[in-house]
């Protein structure tokens, strides 16, 4: 038997320092163990709670692993067709300019099938927040190659690794979007360590706060893990992410307050 290390006497409301936000429903997340989707969902929900905007938010769910994101957020949401979330969000924000509107999209949704909708919503400068989960693979359909799959990275549709000569190059869409005049805040974050989670939450908060300014798209890429698709344990996956994903998709702000961030290299 395991020993009991509970300290029930300190479990009082005044000592509470962390509790799941009420903006998330009690539905059990369908994501695989250790998946960054869950963490990112929680951060968005925490920001919504902290800003007190639960009744003012309309979210758009994508097609991909997070297709049922609306089961987890206790807010009004719409389910888009694959890749079309930015078109829905464009319309929602235009008919409800006073609401906070966000899309939640994966790499296949945002950077392959929905590239057109993404680029044009960003270029028009829609006053919305886009949360982009990049785990370099199609998780829901079983681990196929994504637009962001790294060179030489194996997936089920490039089992011997992504040969860029044959399969083309990974798309750094975040860098591309930062160049557009319609984006106001573009950043790349991650959620696999406590420090990174705290930083990502600040970014998400800023992305929602920016909607009050009406200056254009706030775009947050979350470099995330797909343990099932990568065929690694969650702990191995975050190590692989740090060693392989982050050198190719370096973390940090690309554009702040409408100005490109100069890299000091």
């Amino acid at each position: 038997m395991t020993q009991n290390f509970d300290i029930p006497e300190i479990r009082t409301p005044e000592n509470l320092v962390y509790k799941k936000t009420s903006v998330l429903t009690d539905n059990v997340l369908h994501y695989c163990p250790g998946c960054g989707h869950g963490t990112t969902h929680r951060l968005i929900a925490e920001v919504i709670e902290e800003m007190g905007i639960q009744s003012e938010v309309i979210g758009v769910a994508p097609v991909g692993c997070s297709v049922m994101a609306y089961n987890y957020f206790d807010i009004d949401m719409q389910e888009a067709a694959h890749g079309r979330a930015p078109a829905l969000a464009t319309a929602i924000k235009r008919v409800f300019p006073e609401k906070f509107v966000f899309t939640y999209q994966g790499d296949g949704d945002l950077a392959a099938i929905g590239t057109g909708e993404t680029i044009h919503a960003c270029n028009r400068g829609e006053n919305i927040t886009i949360i982009f989960i990049n785990n370099a693979i199609y998780g829901m359909t079983g681990g196929q190659m994504a637009p962001t799959t790294l060179p030489d990275m194996p997936t089920s549709t490039c089992p011997y690794g992504r040969d860029v000569k044959i399969m083309g190059n990974p798309l750094k869409i975040t860098e591309l979007l930062a160049m557009l005049p319609g984006t106001y805040y573009v950043t790349r974050q991650a959620v696999h360590s406590p420090a990174l989670v705290r930083r990502a939450k600040k970014a998400i908060r800023m992305a929602f706060e920016n909607q009050k300014l009406d200056r254009g798209v706030s775009f947050i890429e979350i470099v995330s893990n797909c343990n099932s698709g990568w065929k690694l344990t969650p702990v191995q996956a975050i190590k692989w992410l740090e060693e392989n994903m982050l050198p190719f998709y370096p973390l940090g702000d690309l554009k702040v307050n409408g100005e490109l961030v100069k890299k000091s290299e």
């Binding site: 300290i7 300190i10 479990r11 009082t12 000592n15 509470l16 320092v17 962390y18 509790k19 799941k20 936000t21 998330l24 059990v28 997340l29 994501y31 163990p33 250790g34 998946c35 960054g36 989707h37 869950g38 963490t39 929680r42 959620v191 696999h192 360590s193 406590p194 989670v197 705290r198």
Partner: peptide
Amino acid sequence: GCSNCAVVCPDGVITVYRA
């Protein structure tokens, strides 16, 4: 009670107290 565990938990299953 540093909350690191709860902050990285994808499923939000950890509640943290600190005194």
